[in-house]
């Protein structure tokens, strides 16, 4: 039973890691979050009492069918929307009651967005796109340029700084988007179907890049409906009808599965 033994070894390793996680800082936390929409006479309960935590260094996938509340959760996690009731804490601070300007600052300082359709600004060069998040913090200058150059190098696009987004392939654009998300040293990266517009080879490249970044202490939350993408994360949070269905530790699950992804 060499396979089991090996799997057991992996499981033990992962267990150790999960135990360690209790000591790592909580950087984002939902406390009984509800998000209700009024549609005519009906109240749609998109999120219905969600509590969860993201700790520093986590790699978390959020999955669920359409209508499960994934998008709503993403919007609140990203500071684009506010809970109807409940608390959303970022870096220990409740941001659910902040005004528009302060919430904009939270987005600008603490969160690194990565979108399905890359969402680079077409009229700007790669370098300028990278500088956008710092521009709104009033931090554009020689340092921001050096940082942009470093991150472009880090995602493998060091020679494309003066290119326009449309001159790049989809995979390259998404690399730029990832570098942009890292520009403000966010507490966590928030990826929305980050590989949804890419072919499977490029998808793998991007997911490898995420793995590459993890030793730097990058925390990743990825919202997806693609199980292959979710498997690459440490944990998967399953949503159903606006509630947490289950939290699966993918490392132990993989082990139980006989080590086959």
């Amino acid at each position: 039973m060499a396979a089991t033994a090996a799997a057991g070894a992996v499981a033990t390793d992962e267990d150790a890691r999960v135990t360690q996680s209790a000591e790592r800082t909580i950087i984002a936390e939902f406390v009984d979050v509800h998000r209700h929409y009024v549609m005519g006479k009906n109240v749609v309960k998109a999120l219905n009492g969600i509590s969860m935590q993201v700790r520093k260094g986590d790699y978390l996938a959020i999955m669920g069918r359409s209508g499960s509340g994934k998008s709503t959760m993403l919007n609140i996690l990203g500071g684009l929307d506010r809970p109807t009731t409940g608390e959303y804490r970022v870096g220990g601070r409740d941001v659910s009651k902040l005004n528009d300007d302060d919430l904009s600052d939270v987005r600008g300082r603490e969160i690194g967005f990565i979108f399905q359709s890359f969402n680079l600004i077409p009229q700007l060069t790669v370098l300028e796109n990278l500088e956008v998040p710092l521009f709104y913090q009033g931090r554009v200058g020689r340092e921001s340029r050096a940082k942009a150059e470093y991150l472009a190098e880090r995602v493998g696009l060091g020679k494309r700084l003066e290119h326009r987004p449309l001159e790049l392939s989809g995979g390259q654009q998404q690399r730029v988007a990832i570098a942009r998300a890292l520009m403000n040293d966010p507490l966590f990266l928030l990826a929305d179907e980050a590989t949804g517009n890419l072919d499977s080879n490029t998808e793998k490249e991007i997911l490898d890049l995420f793995d590459d970044l993890r030793p730097d202490g990058v925390t990743i939350v990825i919202v997806t409906h693609n199980p292959k993408v979710a498997e690459r994360a440490d944990q998967t949070l399953w949503l159903k009808d606006g509630q947490v269905e289950k939290l699966v530790n993918n490392r132990t699950a993989v082990a139980a599965n006989g080590g086959h992804p």
Binding site: D101, D105, R107
Partner: peptide, 16 residues
């Protein structure tokens, strides 16, 4: 509109 959304997501305030 989309560019505006992107900029807002990246931390732009209304005044920006």
């Amino acid at each position: 509109t989309r560019e505006i959304g992107i900029r807002r997501a990246l931390g732009a305030k209304k005044k920006h």
